[in-house]
Amino acid sequence: MTHMTDRNRSQEKMAVAKIRFLVCGFLAIFISSGLCENTLFVLNAPKSVQFDSNAGPINVDEIQDVLTLSLGLSPSKDVKWSGLLAGNLFKRPKSSVLINIESNEGSALNPKHLASFPIAKEAIGFVETNYLMSSISTSFPTQEPILIDAAIDGQLFSLGSQYPNVFGNTPDSLDALLHSLVHGENSIIHNYEALSLNISKSSHLQFFSELQMLQNALEALTKNKAVVDDNVPDSMSFTLYGLRAIQLQHGPKSTEAKEASAVLESFLSQLSSGFMKLYDNNAVVMAVTTQRLPHFEHRMGRSILATDENPTKDSLNVFQRSEEFSAIFNIILWLSVILVLVVYATAYGMWYMDPGDTIIYRMTSQRIKMD
Rank of each mutant, 00 (worst) to 15 (best):
P46S: 04
E323P: 11
L174Q: 10
V340C: 13
T142I: 03
D234C: 01
L218F: 02
S237M: 05
N282F: 09
R92P: 06
F167R: 03
L177R: 01
S139K: 09
L71H: 05
M370K: 15
S180K: 08
T239R: 11
T142H: 09
V182F: 09
E265I: 07
L248Q: 13
L147N: 02
L71M: 11
A220E: 01
S315P: 12
S202I: 04
H298A: 15
F126I: 03
S180E: 03
T138I: 06
I63P: 01
F267N: 08
P311K: 06
A115P: 03
L240T: 08
T346S: 14
L211E: 04
Q64R: 06
R7W: 08
N330P: 11
L278R: 00
N330Q: 10
Q143P: 00
M4Y: 12
F238L: 09
R299K: 12
I63K: 01
Q162A: 13
L109G: 01
N110L: 00
I188V: 07
M363T: 12
L195P: 04
F329Y: 12
M286I: 08
A150K: 07
I19Q: 15
K201D: 03
N44D: 14
S196V: 07
G349L: 15
S235Q: 06
L174F: 01
L243A: 08
G242T: 05
G106A: 00
E12M: 10
N88Y: 02
I63S: 00
V337E: 08
L248S: 07
I31R: 09
V127N: 06
D65S: 12
T312S: 15
Q206P: 00
L177S: 01
N88L: 02
A257T: 05
T68D: 11
F21Q: 10
F275E: 07
R92D: 13
T170Q: 11
Y163F: 12
V66N: 09
L333P: 06
N186L: 05
S74I: 15
L264T: 04
S209T: 08
S96I: 02
P164K: 09
L305S: 03
G168H: 10
H113I: 04
L278D: 00
A123Y: 13
K313W: 06
T289S: 02
P145I: 10
I124K: 12
H113G: 00
N44A: 10
L181W: 06
V166A: 01
I359K: 14
K91I: 11
T129I: 01
A260G: 02
M213W: 03
G106Y: 01
Q50N: 12
F117E: 04
F117K: 05
V127K: 02
D6G: 09
H3E: 15
N38P: 08
Q11C: 09
S82I: 11
D229F: 12
T307P: 00
F157P: 00
E297V: 15
A245H: 05
S53W: 08
H295I: 07
A115R: 07
Q155D: 14
A86R: 14
L35T: 10
Q206L: 13
H250S: 11
F296A: 13
Q366C: 07
T364V: 08
T290K: 07
A287Y: 03
S326R: 11
M213K: 04
T39H: 06
L218V: 09
W81M: 05
S200V: 14
A226D: 06
T222D: 03
A306H: 09
G154C: 02
G301D: 15
N54A: 15
L305R: 02
S261K: 01
L218N: 03
E210T: 04
